[in-house]
Design a protein around this nucleic acid. Structure first.
Length: 156
DNA sequence: GCCAACGTTGGC
DNA sequence: GCCAACGTTGGC
């Protein structure tokens, strides 16, 4: 099982929205590096759900990859904001997975907390300079620390 | 709203 | 292939 971090702006789609939806198709990723990571995903992989562009950015909870990668249908939809005129059904450009809600942290594991514990998270993507990727791999060691930090952060 | 960092586009 | 211009991301 691999671990991943996926970003979302909570104004657009939050951990609460994922909880309500149960499972959500993760449409709209239009960055090749992020797409390539999604292509490596397998059902059962763990997802750290990150809230970006918000008052308290950070990891809000956990999800699970709930499908194999498949073509993002919004790339074919002229009316979609994510329409890509260069994509065809024969040769899709953009892939995605479904993500299922797992649990919401009691408290958001804030970016400021992650930064304060940088020594426990060597090489963690979110803390790398200039990192803007919306989908990133998380190592097993980082995942273990993040889960521990989430527990500490929730006062357990 | 600002701005640094980065990706993409397109002229040459 | 270079690189300026432009667009986007995302913290602050």
């Amino acid at each position: 099982m691999k671990n991943w971090l996926m970003k979302s702006e909570p104004d657009a789609f939050s951990i609460d929205d994922l909880k309500k939806a149960g499972t959500e198709p993760w449409t709209g990723v239009r960055n090749y590096q992020a797409r390539n990571f999604m292509r490596q995903m397998q059902p059962g992989d763990r997802v750290f759900f990150y809230h970006s562009s918000t008052a308290v950015p950070g990891i809000a909870g956990l999800g699970t990859v709930a499908s194999a990668p498949y073509p993002d249908p919004t790339q074919f939809n002229r009316k979609s904001h994510y329409f890509d005129p260069k994509a065809t059904r024969e040769q899709p450009r953009w892939d995605m997975v479904d993500v299922r809600f797992e649990r919401k942290f009691g408290n958001v594991l804030a970016l400021s907390t992650l930064k304060a514990n940088e020594d426990r998270l060597e090489g963690f993507g979110v803390l790398q300079r200039g990192s803007r990727l919306s989908v990133m791999p998380v190592t097993t060691a980082q995942a273990r620390e993040l889960l521990k930090m989430a527990e500490e952060n929730d006062g357990q």
